[in-house]
């Protein structure tokens, strides 16, 4: 049995027929061809599979595709294109916030809304708050330091560009 659903993924409409049990992660990877969505644990503990559903970070391994009928989804592919031009992606590169890259899309999708919110608020959060913001994501390579520095750098850039930085 398959259900007909419509998803808007990275700005593009998809009309799909999916089994109700199929995970959003699998549908994005297999039916939409977005292999930047990575599955790290498939039990909601590592954050590798984080995507945005209607603008909010969500674990696509704990979400059924049929739950997202009519919703708007963004994956890492939507951020900065093939050259990874989003400021947070550039900052990850500058601060060596990635090594094997497997967890990276999940970190980016979890942290982009955090960075945006802090820039909007006009405040540079303390290091502990940045670390808390990534507490749902596991990175086994970097020890997190480069990721923390990338977030600080990106928020700093955002604050400076809108003239609200301390």
């Amino acid at each position: 049995m398959k259900n007909k659903i419509e998803l808007t993924v990275n700005g593009k409409g998809h009309a799909l027929a999916v089994e109700p049990r199929r995970l959003l992660a699998d549908v994005l990877r297999e039916d939409c061809g977005l292999h930047g969505v990575h599955i790290g644990c498939a039990h909601g503990a590592c954050g590798c599979c984080t995507v945005h559903v209607d603008g909010a970070p969500r674990l696509s391994c704990l979400t059924f595709a049929v739950q997202c009928d009519g919703k708007t989804i963004e994956t890492v592919e939507s951020l900065g294109g093939t050259d990874a031009t989003h400021p947070l992606q550039q900052a990850f590169r500058k601060h060596h916030g990635l090594q094997c890259g497997y967890c990276t899309p999940g970190f980016l999708m979890a942290l982009v809304p955090f960075v945006d919110a802090k820039v909007r608020e006009g405040t540079m959060p303390p290091e502990a708050e940045i670390r808390d913001a990534m507490s749902g994501n596991i990175c086994r390579c970097t020890g997190y330091q480069g990721i923390v520095e990338a977030v600080q750098d990106t928020i700093g850039q955002g604050l400076r560009s809108q003239g609200t930085g301390q």
Binding site: R29, G36, V37, E77, L79, D83, R93, G101
Partner: peptide, 21 residues
């Protein structure tokens, strides 16, 4: 120097084993 492999990994365009079909 910044890593040459990073854009592929950051943009979700890397190809891991499960991405080969």
């Amino acid at each position: 120097i910044q890593r040459l492999e990073d854009p592929r990994l950051l943009s979700g365009r890397a190809r891991y084993i499960d991405d080969i079909r």
